[in-house]
Design a protein around this nucleic acid. Sequence first.
DNA 1: CGGAATCCTAAATGATACTG
DNA 2: CAGTATCATTTAGGATTCCG
Lengths: 140, 140
Amino acid sequence: MPTTTAAEQRADAKAQYNAYLAACPSQQLLARVSGKWVTLVLSALGSGPECDGDPRPMRYSELGRVLAGVSPKMLSQTLKSLERDGLVVRTATATVPVTVTYELTDLGLSLHGTVRQLKRWSEAHRDEVAAHQASFDSVR
Amino acid sequence: MPTTTAAEQRADAKAQYNAYLAACPSQQLLARVSGKWVTLVLSALGSGPECDGDPRPMRYSELGRVLAGVSPKMLSQTLKSLERDGLVVRTATATVPVTVTYELTDLGLSLHGTVRQLKRWSEAHRDEVAAHQASFDSVR
DNA sequence: CGGAATCCTAAATGATACTG
DNA sequence: CAGTATCATTTAGGATTCCG
C-alpha cells in the first residue's frame, strides 16, 4: 500500500494554508483584531458608553456595565490581549479598594479610527444588506 | 424551591446584551462581516489570488485553490452568506461540467475598500504590535 | 473592586464521503 | 465541477467560585 493517502493530503493542505498566510500575514493580526469583544471594548474605550462620544479611560467595572452581558472572564481576557498588543494601557491605583482604569494608546486610537470606518460602513449599508437578505430569502 | 436562580440570571444577561445590541445595531453586521473566511474571500475576490491585484470574478474551485485549506463546507457557507447579504453575485453557466463564478457587487466592492484599510493597518502596525507582545511577554 | 481558576456548553470549523 | 450531508473536533464563550 502506498503511503500517499489522507494523512499526506492533510499535511499538504496545512502547508498550503500556511503558505497563504505567509503571503498575507496581516490576516493573522486581522483575525485577532476582529474578535467580537475586541471590537466592542475598542468601541467603548474609543467612543464612550454612548457609542458616539470621545475616547476616555474607563474602569473595569464600568466596562463591565457598558458591555452588559460580558462575563468577567471574557472582559479580562480581551483586555489582557489588548494590553499585550499595546492597544490599551492598564493603570492600577493603590487606593483602598483597588482602582484600575483602561485607556487606549496611540496605537489603539489609530485602530479605533479604522474600526470606526468599518462601523460606519455597517451603519450606512445595513438597510441595503437587510433588503438583499429579505429578497434572497423570499426566493428560497 | 424559588424559581430565581441560574435560568433567570441567564435570561437577564441575554436581555441586557440584546439591549446593548439594540443601542449599537451595527455591531451585528460588523460581527458577520468580520468572520475569518469572509475576510479571506473578500480579499481574494477583491485583490486577486496574489493578494494585491484587481477585483475579478473567480470560480468556485479557483477560490478553493487560492484559499488553500478551506473545506468545501466553509467555502459554500461563506459564499452563500455573502450572496445573501448582496456582497457577491453567483453566476452559473450551463456548460457541460457546470461553470460557476463569483464576483463582488458594488456593495461588496465598497466593503472590500474598508477591509483593505483594516488590512493596511494590520500590515503597517504588525511590527509594532509584535514588539509590544515581546516586551509584555518578557516581563511575565 | 479587580481579577484568576475551574468547569461546562454551544457554536464555529474541519475532515470525509457522497450526489447532481 | 460544484456543491451537500454527516460526523468529529476545536475553540469561543459563559457560569461559578475563590483570592488579593
